[in-house]
Structure formats: C-alpha cells, structure tokens
C-alpha cells in the first residue's frame, strides 16, 4: 500500500477530527452553552441598563468568545496524545506542518466558526447596534482562527502535563490580547460610526502571520511533549 499524498492525508486527518467531534455533539455544544451562560452573567453583574450593556457589548462578546476558545484549546491534542495516535503522527513521513494545520482547522470549524455564527443572537440580546453585527461576525471569524492557532501552541506545550488546564490559560492569554484589542475595536469602530476595515485588515494580517508561524511552533512543541 502506497502512502497517501500530503493533501489526501491531511484531508483524511481533518475528516477524522470532524467525525470524532460530531460523534460527541455535546462537546460541540458546550462552548456555545458557555457563551450563552456568560452573556447572562454580564447583565446580572453590571445591571440591566440597556445603554450601558450596549456600549460594553463589543468587549463582552469578544471576551466571552476568547474564553470559550481558551476552554476548548486544552482538548486539541489530549485525546490523541493519550491513545498514542499523536506519536504515530509524529513518526509518519507526512509534513507535520500540514497535519497540525488540519487539527487546528477541525477545532476552529467546531468552535470558532460556530461561535461566530451564533454571536448575532447574543449581540441582539445585549443590544448591540444592528449595523455592527456583520463586522462582529467577520471579526470573530478572523480572530477566532488566530486564537485557535495560538491556542494550539499552548495545547501542544502542555499536552504531556496532567495539570494542563490552568497553565494553558496563563501561557496563552498574553498572546490573545492583541486579537482581543483589534477584534473588539473593529466592532466598536462601527458602533461609533468609523470604518472597521483597518481593524479587520490587521486581524487578517495576524491570521497570515499565525498561519505561517504557529504550526511550526506547535510541531516543535508536540515533539517536545511526546519525547518527554
């Protein structure tokens, strides 16, 4: 049997990850449920004044999306690390860069993409201006992809550790901050009547940089974690 080509291999990897995720629909639903629950916390904590909530809405929605992403990051490689398939992947002749990308893409499809798609519902609940909603979706689509890639680095570094959960947050939250700044600034810009395109462009630039570099760091970190 000949080895599959790189693209075919990563396609299979992507499919496998998606099938695994779809077999456990609750795991897909959890980040969304988390999103919904934390949205409820803000009116309870800040008071239900619509004007105040609307002015905080871009930041609130972005922070929750970021935290939801953070909570799923830890699971990216854990299952495959524990059953040994990650080791097989590292031994395979396929380029690790592409395989890692398939992992991250699968994770983004079931978290970031879904979060972006359901975000309008919560935006309306918090009273965000209607004109800002398309920009919110666009900023979340770009931003959560960066978050997934950066989160992958944290996941790869801590996959071999039993107490990964808290540690991964400490490691990658500083790297999430630029994304949060530009993501919420894009939405804020539309609300205050300014163009959002510059912020979205910077998010896009961050995504390009993360796409180019993060898989390298994830690959290196996976090798270290598996060797340990």
């Amino acid at each position: 049997m000949s080895a599959p080509g790189t693209l075919a291999f990563s396609g299979r990897l992507l499919r496998r990850q998606l099938v695994l995720a779809l077999r456990r629909p609750v795991d897909i639903g959890n980040p969304l449920l988390f999103f919904a629950m934390v949205v409820v916390l803000f009116p309870l904590g800040l008071g239900p004044v619509p004007a105040a909530l609307a002015s905080f809405a871009p930041g609130i929605l972005w922070i929750i999306a970021l935290l939801a992403n953070l909570l799923t990051a830890d699971n990216l490689f854990r299952g495959d690390f524990e059953d040994g398939s990650l080791e097989q992947l590292l031994l395979s002749p396929q380029p690790l860069y592409i395989s890692v990308l398939a992992y991250v893409l699968a994770q983004w499809l079931v978290t970031g993409l879904l979060l972006a798609l359901v975000s309008p519902l919560f935006a309306v609940m918090l009273g965000l201006a209607g004109a800002a909603i398309p920009v919110l979706i666009a900023s979340l689509l770009l931003g959560t992809a960066v978050l997934s890639l950066v989160g992958g680095i944290g996941a790869a570094l801590t996959v071999g550790l039993n107490r990964g959960g808290m540690l991964i947050a400490l490691l990658i939250l500083p790297f999430y901050m630029p994304v949060l700044i530009f993501g919420s600034a894009a939405v804020q810009a539309v609300v205050s009547g300014m163009p959002a395109a510059p912020h979205l462009a910077i998010l896009g630039a961050m995504l390009c940089l993360a796409l180019a570099l993060a898989p390298l760091a994830i690959g290196a970190a996976l090798r270290i974690s598996v060797d340990a």
Binding site: I153, M177, L209
Partner: peptide, 23 residues
C-alpha cells in the same frame, strides 16, 4: 518547552506592544 514559549513570545512582543499602543 520554555525555549519554544520564549521564541513565540519574541515574535509576539512587538505585536503586543504595537497593539496596546494603538488600543
């Protein structure tokens, strides 16, 4: 692992600084 993390940090420090400046 720390070496990888510090290298990721070096790429990120200018981005963090610039973004915080703009923020």
């Amino acid at each position: 692992a720390c070496a990888v993390l510090t290298l990721v940090g070096t790429v990120n420090i200018p981005i963090i600084y610039k973004s915080v400046d703009w923020w």
